[in-house]
Nucleic acid binder design. Structure first.
Lengths: 232, 232
DNA sequence: TAATCTCTCCAACAATCGCTGGAAACATTA
DNA sequence: TAATGTTTCCAGCGATTGTTGGAGAGATTA
């Protein structure tokens, strides 16, 4: 018994998938209340009732969008984890920042929607009460930021949140920040990466550009075996 | 010739000011489209047409709200700058983080509205085309993060953006992150401060908890005379 | 062919949106 | 007191919102 979301992800050419794709973009740009079902339907090129035929209420479509990007995000995190496994901590972070930044710049709706979920509220609270796993602990483990692989300390989860938020902010606020700094797209992207590394690497690896020797993070962990996201 | 906003800020007991205060909170919680003029009027306890009598269109009220929090933010930055002037860089950052975090936790709508402005769009773009000064260069100067006091380099402005965004995120996302971590309010606030310092201090001052000896920032700047925000 | 199922659109619904005209209530001035 | 100006509310406007019923078009099955 496949859910509508599973069907859509299985067949990307189906009408369900086409609607979902546009819905991601529009919900991401305007938020839940800023987006209208008519905007989405018009973007797909279909009548509005066709949209309702496939996805039901606006809230259901929004939930599908959130779960959809969550699935994409998880797949990407697994791929990044595989790429950095076994490398020293500083290298792991360097690569992870590069890859996640590139990926999110190519899929801006993801950052937009994550931030909307963090910071925005809905008039009808019951529309947003569905649960979405947040991966912070998994990221902490795959980065090797804590020794205890079962129970990730709260403060470490805060550190991961700070990292992820920093990336999402620069991706999602691109238009605003770029016009503020008067830079082109390419220059902005590389400035984002530089800034993220400038700020994050020293904190987690000891000093900028070098491998970790911080007493809490670093040395003993930089090539520690880390558990996998893939069986979650 | 005083603008409505100036009148409201001058007399905090006036109806204009009472409406503005509630509007800050509701626009901050729900965003421009999520908030309705009826919600605001109901919150003040007045009829909706009274709101329109004082503030005109919804977009005008929203603009007044944004300019209002901007003025508050500027005043706070001036106060913080005065408190940290002349101190070593690490101390400056430590105090600035503490004060700004406390202030924004006490005035969450500010962080909410700043983030909405960065990441959200409006259906009618012309509603948001008013300009708001962004203070990034002033913050960079008052923190002593650059030598050239006239022209703050773009990469330094990016660093300031990263700092400010990190604070706004934790303030604005309090509900979400707290339920994610299962912590009480007080514990969350102190975890936020710890995390901000853990991440930001090493990058800007060389190593955690110590004064700066970074070759770009730090040494020569930690007690440099910095220009003031007050005459802006 | 007839019947059934899947899909798409047209038209319209009630509710809510931003917004306004005009009448009261109140305060100020003459 | 009378006249004028300011503030507030009631009632309602047109437009847009989310949402639905029902009629077709097309493919599949009987």
């Amino acid at each position: 018994m496949a859910t509508p979301l599973q069907k859509a992800r299985k067949d990307p050419d189906s009408m369900k998938a086409r609607i979902l794709k546009k819905a991601r973009r529009i919900f991401g740009e305007y938020g839940f209340h800023g987006a209208t079902t008519r905007m989405i339907a018009e973007d797909v090129g279909i009548d509005i009732s066709t949209l309702y035929y496939h996805w039901g209420e606006k809230g259901d479509l929004y939930e599908a969008v959130v779960l959809d990007i969550n699935e994409d995000l998880k797949e990407k995190l697994v791929a990044v984890e595989r790429a950095i496994r076994g490398l020293p901590l500083a290298t792991r972070m360097d690569i992870a920042i590069d890859r996640m930044t590139d990926y999110l710049f190519d899929n801006r709706e993801i950052s937009n929607l994550v931030l909307f979920r963090y910071f925005g509220k809905t008039r009808d609270a019951s529309l947003l009460d569905f649960q979405v796993p947040e991966f912070v602990s998994e990221i902490a483990r795959s980065m090797g930021l804590c020794r205890d692989k079962v129970n990730v300390p709260k403060i470490v989860r805060m550190h991961v949140l700070a990292m992820m938020n920093a990336i999402h902010n620069f991706v999602s606020g691109e238009d605003f920040f770029r016009s503020m700094l008067s830079v082109e797209r390419d220059e902005y992207v590389s400035m984002v990466k530089d800034t993220l590394k400038y700020i994050l690497l020293p904190a987690f690896t000891g000093s900028a550009g070098e491998n970790g020797n911080n007493e809490e993070y670093g040395t003993n962990l930089k090539d520690a075996k880390t558990p996998s996201l893939e069986n979650g």
